[in-house]
Design a protein around this nucleic acid. Structure first.
Length: 793
DNA sequence: GAGTTTGAAACT
DNA sequence: CAGTTTCAAACTC
């Protein structure tokens, strides 16, 4: 696991932020009214109608599923002169109004089907400055990475993580991380149809759900959020936007595209606005220092999770997906709302339900009075359905990263134990959310999260009536949300960060850190308490994924690395901080290695993160798997860069292609390559390898059988002498007999060696001789038994 | 286990 | 981008 020091973390935004995509986005209205820098935003967010996912229920207090919000009532955006943009549902209670105090944010529209923005700041202290796109699909708001077409293509092929808030979901969860801000969720209207407008860049984007939950800074400085459900988004000048109102209607379905505009808060110095957090149809007040807290309670409590209405945490379709999980702990003053967040990932994505219990929360669902209790040291977050090796879960840490690396046997990845020094207290409002699975076959994986000090008792997961998993959330301040810290700090190379990377809180950025946890790292620890991320059946269960990883590919068995622990490294000079080190290259900590002066551990977090950054600067793909999917029509697996072998003929493990048990491809620059399909050398080699493997298996089986027979023989002969039964006397296996047997065997082995027999043949001869010896022993024993019986008679 | 070979990674 | 050096794993003895 990597730990990013605060210093380094503070450097991340500018250095690793991927702004290329944003720059490439062509705003529909490049009027240049942007604040700091022109960053086009997609105003139109078409909502995909997903009848199955109509209902979104986050509040646990209501058990009955609510009717799905339909896009009939498109999100209306009041751009232009009106300084407020409202995003309200048809139901009066579902109206969410965001009123930034100052309209300093800037928003631009883009003709894409998704809304992209470069920064969202909910508080003056924290901003989400990373480029992102908001799109509404499947009733979810998902933050995806790069919006540019290039990024999209790259994301498909190479597994980059687009930061796009897509329309895969209808929820936008805004929460303050590490601050006393109450989380709020923007629940998008339900759309029955795909976006009509702005399809330019949207097609590719719509299928890549990325960030599921967005946490906005510890303070409510969300300058403006514009949602227009009904029609296209007009270009909004964030400067004119003061209030974002999203209107949402509860009709069953609607085809109207939803457009969102996320304005960039250029000037965060203005008075802070109070944002009403809405979760599961409820609006939770979020008080700002300057404004009186408002509490809006939505009468429609969507308690039960309805498919499609959940926040997707870990999309599985595309590789390199990143989930940001906030574990920040609120400050003492923070009045948190008990929020149950059923998260469902469309397309077989995980369902994540996070419940936050906040004392005094108007909308808290209390299953039972559970005051702050000590939670178990490990709070696994279950993440399921991870199919992509690139998928990562980023868990923001509330405090300085107090992370313990946990090596999971058989897993390439580390478990991250997140320890937050939180002193959260107050009544524990716990509720179990039942997320209705989009399909069966929910998978549960867990990421242990530990709170160091006062931990609250985490609820044990309850089985969902449906295949979906119940998500239980600890009553701690842990949140499955995207931290309010500048998004740029974490956005840029999330996909490239090695697994287990922990980003320490940046100076002045609050106490939020991040832990990058690749999805597949999240294994199936069924420990409690935990937050469960269930995946629909659209994706194979984790076990299925793992099994699939072992399946032969292209005639080659999957690399053993997928099923066995990695090999210990022996680095001596690289300090295990260069890609020479396999541990480091795989994003792993050194554990049980033979390396010297190793820095690839938690004790050298800063150095390690610097090394990671250096590697990423040198090669953004450095930590991505080298073996990826090849071009169409080519082998399913091929080396991403190809090998450069010159002398090995690509038939030794020096060759990365051969080592990965794949054939060289056209991109290889090897000389004298013999690692191709028709290569006779390769065939011979493979044949020999297969033969050797078969031989080993046979020998193993023979030895096992022989041992079993001997054991059985001894067992059967033991009672003979005492009981006089029909068993052979074991006393015949005396020292002399053993020595004689060994001599016979040795003689046989010598003879085999003299005759230059192969090892296999020699072994066969020895075993055969051993069998003969046994037969003689048995015969002698039988004869002795007969004699004994005759004597007894 | 020591020494050699090899090719990726790092460096210039 | 190409050439060189460094490095650790693979390989040989």
């Amino acid at each position: 696991m990597d730990v990013v020091s605060p210093e380094l973390n503070s450097l991340l935004p500018d250095e690793i932020m991927d702004t290329e995509a944003m720059e490439k986005v062509v705003p529909s209205q490049p009027d240049g009214t942007m604040g700091v820098k022109p960053e086009p935003l997609d105003l139109t967010v078409p909502m995909e109608t997903d009848s199955s996912s109509e209902t979104l229920n986050i509040c646990s207090d209501v058990a009955a599923p609510q009717p799905a919000l339909s896009t009939d009532s498109p999100l209306t955006i009041n751009p232009g002169a009106s300084s407020s943009v409202s995003m309200a549902s048809s139901m009066p209670s579902s109206i969410i109004t965001l009123k930034p105090v100052q309209a300093t944010s800037v928003a631009t529209t883009r003709t894409t089907d998704s809304v992209t923005g470069t920064s969202v700041s909910t508080s003056g202290l924290q901003k989400l400055t990373g480029p992102f796109t908001i799109s509404a699909a499947n009733h979810q708001i998902i933050l995806n990475k790069v919006a540019s077409s290039q990024a999209t293509e790259a994301g498909r092929g190479a597994g980059t993580t687009p930061q796009i808030i897509k329309q895969d979901g209808q929820k936008l969860l805004l929460t303050a991380i590490g601050k006393s801000v109450q989380p709020f969720v923007l629940q998008l209207p339900h759309t029955g149809s795909k976006p009509v407008v702005s399809q330019a860049a949207g097609d590719a984007k719509t299928q890549t759900p990325q960030f599921k939950v967005v946490t906005i800074g510890g303070r409510t400085e969300l300058k403006s959020i514009v949602g227009n459900a009904g029609n296209q988004m007009s270009t909004l000048q964030a400067q004119h936007l003061k209030t974002v109102q999203i209107t949402k209607k509860t009709p069953v379905s609607s085809a109207a595209p939803i457009k969102f505009i996320v304005t960039k808060a250029v000037n965060s110095k203005g008075p802070q606005t109070s944002v009403a957090p809405v979760i599961a149809g409820r609006v939770l007040t979020q008080t700002s220092p300057l404004m009186t807290p408002r509490t809006i309670t939505l009468t429609e409590s969507h308690n039960t999770s309805i498919p499609g209405k959940k926040i997707a945490i870990s999309p599985l379709k595309t590789p390199s997906k990143v989930t940001v999980v906030s574990v920040a702990s609120p400050t003492g003053n923070t009045s948190q709302k008990s929020v149950a967040l059923p998260v469902n990932v469309a397309l077989g994505q995980q369902i994540l339900t996070v419940q936050q219990a906040t004392p005094g929360s108007p909308v808290k669902v209390v299953t039972g009075p559970s005051p702050a209790q000590n939670i178990k040291p490990v709070q696994p977050v279950a993440v399921g359905g991870v199919s992509s090796s690139q998928f990562k879960t980023i868990i923001p840490l509330a405090t300085q990263p107090n992370v313990q690396q946990i090596q999971v046997p058989g897993s390439r990845f580390h478990y991250v134990r997140l320890v937050t020094a939180t002193t959260a207290s107050g009544p524990s409002t716990s509720s179990v959310q039942t997320a209705k699975p989009m399909s069966t076959g929910a998978v549960r994986m867990s990421v242990p999260i530990v709170q160091a000090k006062t931990v609250k008792q985490m609820m044990a997961p309850k089985p969902l009536p449906s295949a979906a998993h119940v998500v239980t959330s600890p009553q701690t301040q842990q949140r499955l949300i995207m931290p309010a810290t500048p998004l740029t700090q974490i956005q840029p190379n999330f996909a490239n960060l090695p697994p287990g990377t922990v980003l320490a809180p940046a100076p002045g950025g609050g106490n939020m850190g991040y832990a990058v946890v690749p999805a597949q790292y999240v294994t199936q620890l069924q420990q409690n308490p935990f937050v469960t991320l269930a995946s629909s059946s659209a994706f194979p269960p984790l076990t299925g994924v793992q099994t699939q990883a072992r399946l032969p590919l292209n005639g080659f068995p999957a690399p053993e690395s997928t099923s066995r622990p990695r090999k210990p490294c022996n680095c001596t000079k690289s300090q295990c901080l260069k890609l020479y080190c396999d541990c480091f290259a795989n994003g792993e900590f050194c554990s049980n290695c033979n390396c010297n002066n190793c820095f690839n551990n938690l004790e050298h977090e800063t150095e390690r993160l610097k090394a990671i950054k250096t590697c990423l600067d040198r090669n953004p793909e450095a930590f991505k798997p080298k073996i990826g999917k090849g071009k169409e029509g080519e082998s399913d697996r091929r080396h991403s860069k190809g090998c450069n072998c010159k002398r090995s003929g690509c038939l030794k493990n020096y060759c990365e292609c051969y080592e990965a048990k794949i054939m060289c491809s056209s991109i290889c620059k090897c000389i004298g390559c013999k690692n191709f399909e028709e290569s006779p050398e390769r065939k011979t080699l493979m044949h020999l390898a297969d033969a050797a493997e078969v031989r080993v298996q046979q020998q193993t089986a023979a030895k096992t059988k022989l041992s079993s027979q001997i054991s059985d023989l001894l067992t059967r002969t033991a009672p003979v002498m005492s009981s006089g039964g029909g068993r052979l006397p074991y006393t015949f296996v005396t020292k002399e007999v053993l020595e004689a047997t060994c001599e016979c065997l040795m003689e046989k082995a010598k003879r085999a060696e003299q005759t230059r027999q192969s090892q296999a043949e020699a072994e066969r001869m020895v075993l055969e001789e051993f069998g003969h010896c046994l037969m003689r022993i048995i015969s002698s024993a039988a004869k002795a038994k007969t004699d004994c019986d005759s004597v007894n008679c």
